[in-house]
Design a protein around this nucleic acid. Structure first.
Length: 318
DNA sequence: AACTATTTCAACCGCTGTCGA
DNA sequence: ATCGACAGCGGTTGAAATAGT
């Protein structure tokens, strides 16, 4: 397309945001919603480009952002979704409410990627080094093909979710605009989110969780896959680590009664298989070789989790 | 305490996808 | 069908923070 950069105007500030700029942006969005990002800076009295404002808002100022340490479950979710989706950070972020794609990307690059490398796992293919020795075998090719198959299902599902969320957004926006005319005074969170999220009134069983980086509807703000497994996520997701990151990681993984390992293995398996099967009933035949793939894949994830489990200490991992 | 090396993460850049005219 | 405007995405950068000597 070759469009000109949005920040090529002289006089536009770059670099770190000052508290005053944050306050201006926050105040403006709270009052008016972001509307068109392109025109926002001028209206808000900011010497920034719209893109910079959008980034500051989505990655830092948004009131629904959770900051701080990633929980073990969040880490595992990222690792497993990365194995399925690759570097599709925004897609991964839809499964981690309150985390931004940028934050997940940074966390992957600075922590998780290194951890996998130390464990001898290729962070791109998510295969153990030894597995590459088998790369010429049919088994490996089969795994590759079926992993790709799973990724396709996941992609299709994410697209469908995003489409549903967009449609829901349109419907609800109309509803909200009517409401807004009638009742202009909302709490700060809702006021601030005028254009990027909507209050959950009238949404039935599902709370609409929408943002520029997350367009998926979650029930109870929980990742769908976690809910699917019935893993108790509330306190665990928000738990505060009392010792080192890795101690926390190891402690939780080493608790069989908590079912984390099985949970995350089955997370991919049950969720993806269920989805594949239910979708297959309507659209695609799932044959025997695909079933055997899921068995292979289960072994693959068990291998990864066993490797994590057998790592002796944090300094080995990092 | 001073210096250097390494790590972290907020922010930028450039590209792509989508939508309306 | 084409084009331009815009939003969003993923890769990358570099300043600040932290760790090591």
């Amino acid at each position: 397309m070759g469009r000109s950069p949005c920040c090529d105007k002289d006089g536009l500030k770059k670099g770190p945001w000052t508290p005053e700029e944050d306050q201006k942006l926050l105040a403006y969005i709270e009052e008016h919603g972001h509307g068109s990002w392109r025109s926002l800076p001028e209206k808000a009295g900011l010497q920034r480009c719209g893109k910079s404002c959008r980034l500051r808002w989505t990655n830092y100022l948004r009131p629904d952002i959770k900051r701080g340490k990633f929980s073990v479950q969040e880490e595992q979710t990222i690792i497993q979704l990365h194995a399925l989706l690759g570097n599709r950070w925004s897609a991964i972020a839809t499964h981690l409410p309150k985390r931004t794609d940028n934050e997940i990307k940074n966390y992957w690059n600075t922590h998780l990627k290194k951890r996998l490398v130390k464990m001898g796992i290729d962070p791109v293919t998510h295969k153990h080094k030894n597995e590459t020795l088998l790369s010429s075998t049919g088994q490996s090719n089969k795994n590759l093909a079926t992993l790709s198959h799973m990724a396709q299902w996941e992609s299709a599902r994410l697209e469908a979710e995003a489409r549903l969320a967009r449609e829901s957004k349109l419907l609800h926006l109309q509803h909200y605009q009517n409401k807004k005319a009638a009742a202009p005074s909302l709490c700060l969170t809702h006021k601030a989110s005028t254009n990027w999220t909507k209050p959950n009134e009238g949404m039935g069983d599902h709370q609409l969780l929408e943002s520029p980086t997350s367009t998926v509807t979650f029930s109870e703000n929980l990742p769908p896959m976690i809910m699917h497994l019935g893993i108790p996520t509330g306190n665990r997701n928000s738990r505060v680590a009392v010792s080192s990151e890795h101690d926390d990681w190891m402690r939780q993984i080493n608790c069989p009664e908590e079912g984390i390992e099985e949970g995350f293995t089955s997370l991919l398996l049950s969720d993806s298989v269920d989805r594949s099967l239910s979708a297959g009933k309507n659209a695609v035949e799932v044959n025997e070789s695909e079933y055997s793939y899921y068995e292979d894949n289960k072994n693959y994830w068990n291998t990864i989790l066993n490797l994590v489990d057998s790592s002796p200490s944090d300094d080995v991992l990092i």
